[in-house]
């Protein structure tokens, strides 16, 4: 018996036609129930930073049927991102907003996407985030995380905020938790694993922190406010 490798060019199958919007909504409603899916599809969630956390958060939320994602990042896809971020080799050099919108569209063709290719600052945060009910902090640098959290809590106190701190290295996956710091402020991570120490970030631990954040978003929308 011989086996042969299938060349990439012949391994592709013809794309199926994308299901209609009605079929798409019906499938999500069947899975989540009408009430919950209506909450998910009516929600606008902002993802601030589209790196290891943000690209994974956005894809998880798109799969869950969130209606609208506000995606903010100034950066471009780099070869050093691919070990943990939801981009492809063919997308190196492109704006992360652009590349992530393309990847999300392949998963969830009818989601509303609002990309902003800008650096989020204290000055523009309130206007960029005004339409979001829930904001995910998904930056890489500690100073940027603190800036966004302080700005949102001071200027947008009616928003829910789900931030992250501490997901670097090969520490236990079970150390990553979500806690409710204040009524509308949640924090995921182990709180201590700094990327500056040790081997940096690995995909599973960043993904599970992103999953904590995305899951907290769904729980808030379901009015389950405890982590």
């Amino acid at each position: 018996m011989t086996s042969k490798l299938i060349a990439p060019s012949t391994a592709r199958t013809e794309p199926e036609a994308v299901p209609s919007r009605e079929a798409w909504n019906a499938a999500l409603t069947k899975r989540h129930g009408r009430e919950l899916q209506e909450r998910f599809s009516a929600a606008a969630v902002a993802v601030c930073g589209l790196g290891g956390l943000g690209s994974n958060i956005a894809i998880a939320l798109a799969r869950a049927g969130i209606g609208r994602l506000i995606l903010i990042d100034f950066d471009r896809v780099d070869i050093t991102n691919l070990h943990r971020q939801q981009y492809k080799a063919s997308q190196i050099g492109r704006d992360k907003t652009d590349a992530l919108c393309e990847n999300i569209r392949e998963i969830a063709p009818y989601i509303e996407l609002e990309p902003h290719t800008v650096r989020l600052t204290e000055e523009n945060a309130a206007s960029l985030l005004k339409d979001a009910g829930i904001i995910c902090e998904a930056f890489d640098k500690a100073e940027n995380k603190a800036m966004l959290v302080n700005t949102v809590l001071e200027e947008l106190p009616d928003k829910y905020l789900v931030a992250a701190s501490g997901m670097a290295g090969l520490g236990s996956a079970n150390a990553v938790k979500t806690r409710r710091v204040a009524e509308r402020f949640y924090l995921s991570g182990d709180g201590v694993s700094d990327v500056a120490e040790g081997l940096g970030l690995v995909a599973p631990r960043v993904m599970l922190c992103a999953a904590h954040q995305a899951h907290m978003v769904l729980r808030i929308l379901a009015e389950e406010f405890e982590p």
Binding site: V149, A164, A182, G191, A196, V206
Partner: peptide, 30 residues
């Protein structure tokens, strides 16, 4: 006590008996 203290007010915020303070310290990575 569950409310954010604006950065600009750290110098004028006097800690009172019975206050509950949470300092959230961010580390890098994302």
């Amino acid at each position: 006590n569950g409310e954010i203290v604006p950065k600009a007010r750290y110098g004028e915020t006097v800690l009172q008996d019975g206050d509950s303070i949470e300092v959230v310290n961010f580390v890098g990575g994302g």
